[in-house]
Amino acid sequence: MNVEFLGTGGYHPDAHRHTTCVLLPDRGLCIDAGSAFFRAPDRLSEHGVTELDLVLTHAHLDHIVGLTFPLVHIERGTLTAVRIHGRKKKLDAVREHLFANDLFPIIPQVYEWLPLPDVESGSLDVAGGTLHFREQTHPGGSLGLRFDADGKRFAFCTDTVPEAATADFAADADLFAHECNFPDGWEDLGARTGHSTLTPTLDLARQVRAKRTLLVHVSPGACDPADPVGLGDVTNPPPFTAVAVDGLQATL
């Protein structure tokens, strides 16, 4: 299982990171279509993949804006189908607002909108594996995701706060990616915006016992882009934990 982190920032892109987009290129599976989604069609083409299953964790703008980007690839025929999975309410909001005639008048005809089952947690077979989802704490809601295939487990939980249920959901993952939007000291803003700070996120990672942990969806307001959440100041982080950067690739 190959996982590529095309966009690892949150809120808005900056000179160092685009907003959320994670691609499993050889499987034609993508999580979120943030500003980094412009990178996805070329990566798919390099793997000879022309169809994509795209899962939206939620519909905040920094996770969906890229849906307006791939028109050239669609016109060229290098991207022939995009199946968009998400909560029905979120898919409806994207179609009504992002693709409103006054904002962006073309809804690509290759887009297929596929609501997930209306349950708190569930699963579906996709991209040669099983995608599990569960509702998370975040303003407006968001989905935590886990993709199991070929004996490997990849868990991705962004736009949320560390929750006890996540430890069971992501337990023993080969790769665990969890948002860490703020460093310690920003707990008040984290609570108001539904985002995570460093120490609780690392505590959760210890409970998950993943082989590798990546911190994602980091704030573009960080003073040090190389270490935006202060991970380098932690004396005993969970094993094999790092802050993700755009372009990072992991093979499970």
Rank of each mutant, 00 (worst) to 15 (best):
F99H: 04
N236I: 05
K152F: 08
L24W: 13
L202W: 07
A100G: 06
L215S: 06
L52H: 04
I31V: 15
A171L: 12
P115I: 14
A93G: 00
E51M: 10
A15Y: 09
V218W: 09
A15I: 05
E112M: 10
T213C: 04
V22N: 04
C223T: 11
E179N: 13
F133I: 02
E51P: 06
D26W: 02
T20F: 10
D150Q: 14
D42P: 02
V72W: 07
A93F: 15
R153M: 06
G230H: 02
L252R: 01
D92M: 08
L114A: 03
G144C: 00
D118R: 11
D118V: 08
H97M: 05
E96C: 00
F104R: 05
G140T: 07
F182H: 11
R212L: 08
G221Q: 12
A242D: 15
L79C: 03
Q109V: 10
T213H: 06
A100N: 09
A222V: 08
L215C: 05
A33V: 05
D62E: 14
T50D: 11
L71V: 13
L29G: 02
P115K: 15
E4L: 15
H58I: 00
P228G: 05
D227C: 09
R87V: 12
V234Y: 04
K90M: 09
N181I: 02
A177I: 06
I84F: 07
T8E: 07
G230Y: 00
G34L: 04
L131D: 02
F169Q: 01
V245M: 08
R76N: 13
I31D: 00
T160L: 10
S142H: 07
A165E: 14
S35N: 10
H63R: 10
A36Q: 02
G10R: 00
G122W: 10
P70W: 08
A171Q: 11
A244L: 13
C180L: 09
K88V: 01
A191K: 13
G48H: 10
Y111H: 07
L231Q: 09
P228V: 12
L215W: 02
H178F: 14
T130I: 11
